[in-house]
Design a protein around this nucleic acid. Structure first.
Lengths: 340, 340
DNA sequence: GTGAAAGCGCTAACAA
DNA sequence: TTGTTAGCGCTTTCAC
């Protein structure tokens, strides 16, 4: 692999001249530029990014701190990644994917010292140790999600309060009186995962506001758990006519359980989700959802970070309120006539 | 941020001693080691990975060359990524996600010169320009998928020949005589994407071998396209009793189309897929599939690469033959009695 | 067992 | 407009 010195020698110029024709940070005569460019072409020279990074202290690489791939937590939402990747690529940044193996953040975080310019966090807890540490070290980062305390931190999140209210309002409008919410796994509550807790609270608020009866249950992230949850809910509350969920992995099980009990969707039970449209379109029937803008959130998270790194001192805290898309899984409550 | 020099000064030793107590590449007396370690702790020193990389020519980072996120190609399989990430993390490698924007591989590939030790390719074409280039430059890489010509390249792939044969054999055994195959988007055929072409060919082979009637159609990767494909197929061949697909994004549409025509799954039409079990479990009914081992393939691809980088001169070309898992979407052909 | 010093390939003063 | 040179923070010879 040729180095800059090789180019300089071949073009008969100083090393710094090569550097400057490449960076354009100082004028170079057409003649010299020509010779340098030719030497570069002939030797198929490519600048060594690591050496450049050492000299400039910038790598043009950001990392997405991807949650542990352990079995104790549900597989997080991959759809964020494509958004992050898109934003990074567009601005010519590299994207490093990281995992936090054992909650031993300190270690892993700094193990790549100098390799990345900033960090995008996802699966953020209300009180997130990573955030505490990053703030302390003044390390540049943004979040997909948000904490309890967010002063000075740029983030993008779904407005779960809005989302659950929208779902409940919609169902109330259809005459539903008894609605259930299938939330995420208990483990997520234990560790204070923002979206799980906020959804739960918002659902209860919304119920109260619309004067509905409701019940909730946590649920592991796989179809069988969704299946079991439905059976559990219908046993606890036989007059249930609607189910809300924000857990993508369980939706298949929910539909199947309803079928297996001889009930029809949406005639007997309506389903409304806070889910990716992609998942919503995959099931039969398709699901009415607040369209979870994974890709957009990933994109914004990364874009905000890069702006931050490039010196734009933007301060942005975004709560997205995507629309409710009505599909096949929802309709008037079966007992709507009676209760009106 | 403290550097090694700071540690050396504080511990009252030479810089090289600090380096060696860290790397263990030369004996250090207990006393000195103690002092160094203490200084490191006190200053919260973390080695600077970029500097180390420049000195050692190794970054302990690999990249996954993720296909373009353009709209002209279907969104590739994210599930590979988690497998790759798992393998990398386990061996303490970083994972960089890359995109190839405009087929202008040369550019992007070398733009990060020195930042990564090796590459994992996915969405491999039978005659892939990236492979040509990497071979020429003797750049370390492995593939998830494989080309026409693979001498000297380590790869892992699904055995599509086996997979399609297994599907057809299974259906033949259930008395199906007329079976269709919904493949990937036409664009993938145009560019010679391995799995699309191999599946197509294998399906035809299998039909011939079992003496079945069949037809195939390419299909864009979204549910509506799947819906349309089914209607198209059933118009072309009304006596169809089974559909095979390897396109995860269309499965929802396939099921819905069958429903909407007043047909029952599996009584009237059986569906068999070459899909991720995760997708197969999500639909109602659940789908009988050759369980596509995305995660495993990602893991193996990365693991092979890392072994290669660490000097193990393994030569591995793996074709996986995962089992057929029978779920709810398949059963005896409706006209089985007649044809037997 | 430890220290001194020469790189790794680049950027960016500082000179000319 | 161009050349010279001192770092960036580490690893690794080569001496002692």
């Amino acid at each position: 692999m040729p180095t800059m010195a090789d180019i300089a020698k071949r073009a008969g110029v100083a090393l710094s001249t090569v550097s400057h024709t490449l960076s354009g940070k100082r004028p170079v005569s057409a003649q010299v530029r020509q010779r340098v460019l030719q030497a570069i072409a002939e030797l198929e020279y490519e600048p060594h990014a690591v050496a450049r990074a050492l000299a400039t202290k910038r790598t043009r690489t950001i990392a997405l701190l991807y949650p542990a791939l352990s079995s104790s937590l549900p597989e997080p939402h991959f759809e964020f990644v494509s958004g992050v990747l898109e934003a990074a690529s567009l601005r010519k940044y590299g994207l490093l994917l990281w995992t936090t193996p054992n909650d031993d953040q300190e270690v892993l975080n700094m193990i790549q010292q100098g390799f990345i310019d900033g960090l995008v966090l996802m699966e953020v807890r209300l009180d997130d140790p990573r955030v505490t540490m990053l703030k302390k070290r003044k390390y540049p980062f943004t979040m997909i999600g948000h904490c309890q305390e967010n002063t000075g931190i740029n983030f993008v999140d779904l407005d779960f309060d809005y989302a659950l209210h929208a779902c409940v309002e919609y169902l109330a409008g259809l005459g539903h009186r008894h609605v259930a919410f299938i939330n995420h796994s208990p483990r997520l509550f234990e560790i204070g995962m923002g979206y799980a807790l906020r959804s739960e609270e918002a659902f209860h608020h919304a119920l109260a506001q619309w004067g509905l009866q409701g019940l909730t249950c946590p649920c592991e992230s796989h179809t069988q758990a969704g299946y079991d949850a439905v059976n559990d809910l219908l046993t606890r509350e036989p007059s249930l006519t609607a189910i809300v969920t924000s857990n993508a992995w369980v939706s298949g099980g929910v539909i199947r359980a309803i079928h297996d009990r001889g009930l029809k969707i949406p005639q007997d039970i309506s389903i409304v989700g806070v889910l990716s449209p992609r998942v919503a379109e995959m099931t039969v029937p398709t699901l009415t959802t607040i369209d979870f803008p994974f890709n957009k959130m990933g994109y914004m998270g990364a874009d905000m970070l890069i702006r931050q790194l490039e010196g734009e001192t933007v301060s942005t805290q975004v709560l997205l309120k995507p629309p409710l898309t009505i599909r096949q899984s929802s309709g008037p409550a079966r007992d709507a006539q009676l209760t009106l």
